[in-house]
Design a protein around this nucleic acid. Structure first.
Lengths: 195, 195
DNA sequence: GAGATGACAGATGTCGATATTTGTCATCCA
DNA sequence: TGGATGACAAATATCGACATCTGTCATCTC
């Protein structure tokens, strides 16, 4: 750990590791400094506060999520309705997988996301844009009824919050969650389809 | 308070009052006994545990909510789509009003409801039945497309969780919540409408 | 004797004294 | 001279002694 130059990137990685080990309550910047083999004063040279450091962690984490997500929903040749179904299904499945494979870590990031709502709402904006783009295509192709794409995209995200909002993470353990999400997605697709 | 016979009903009322004053964390059965002017041993003659007492409170509270709700959505002469819109709008408005007019008390009942999930799921079953009845009518009248009423009712409740699930109570302060709920309701109505 | 009481043990909560952490900064050093 | 250090004050957290609460039950009262 020692030797290499100390930059923001390494500090963020160390912070992530400390959060992973100790959770959000018990993580201190002293822990981060110890892990890096430096004094805590050095950490404060790169980040103005503990809050800023945590924000950098959640920002980087969400950047990664967006990257994974974009890769998983490469725009296929499918028609907009199927693309939308695929996007939502993938989005839910990715969240559920993360929440289930490491609930502690997921809870940790949930705390950080709540602390830094600015970063979270940026993430929501990204999801809205992804959905909105498909809605625009669908309206253009005549698959979807005419309407305001932004309003429709928001309604879709709102109607599926139980399946993607981390607030509902506990409910994602239910074996019925997959069937229930499929039913809601079908309901939505019927709702926006052209008549 | 003294003098009258001590029955379960009076104990539940006193408990509600104590919860209202002190909140769920600080409420003790000693407080309840004090308010009633009896010893705490007497309370334990009527309820086997503090948990059972709290459960009785949340049960009675939800009974009241159902009564108010049933009164507010008296089946009108409207067609099923309008009845469904009215039911959902009323349901959300009632919750929002309660959460806003006394957030502390609402939070208290939220804690109790979470503690006693059996009671809560009974409440959900009631809501599902209300929605399901309208769906059945709508399918019969030809307003709604054919389908499994139970599945459809659950999908409707799931798609609107952001607007009725107390987990989202903080978000209900947003001025956009009303417009967003209206958009989701319209999306749902379009989704179940016969083609 | 049906119902209320209060003493009691064990569990849980409170509170102040003590220790740790956050954030700053004068100093050091390569 | 840019970057790291650790002493420091103020804010937070931890801990154990003490107080309160939960649930039981032998006893009392009407």
């Amino acid at each position: 750990m020692r030797g290499e130059p100390l930059d923001a990137e390494r500090i963020v990685s160390a912070t992530e590791e400390v959060l992973r080990r100790h959770g959000p309550e018990k993580s201190t910047v002293l822990d981060v400094a110890r892990l890096l083999g430096v004094s805590h004063g050095s950490v404060y040279r790169h980040f103005p506060s503990k809050a800023a450091l945590r924000e950098a962690v959640i920002r980087r984490w969400l950047d990664g999520v967006r990257e994974d997500f974009a890769a998983a929903v490469q725009d296929s040749a499918l028609a907009p309705p199927d693309r939308l179904r695929g996007l939502l299904t993938t989005m839910f499945a990715m969240k559920w997988a993360k929440a289930r494979e490491d609930p502690e870590l997921f809870a940790t990031f949930r705390v950080l996301a709540a602390e830094h709502s600015t970063v979270s709402s940026g993430h929501v904006a990204f999801l809205l844009a992804q959905i909105g783009a498909i809605v625009v295509d669908g309206i253009a192709s005549g698959d979807f009824a005419a309407g305001e794409p932004d309003v429709i995209a928001r309604a879709i995200l709102n109607a599926t919050s139980r399946f993607h909002d981390p607030t509902h993470a506990e409910e994602w353990h239910s074996p019925e969650i997959e069937a229930e999400s499929a039913d809601v997605i079908s309901l939505i697709l019927d709702g926006i389809r052209a008549r």
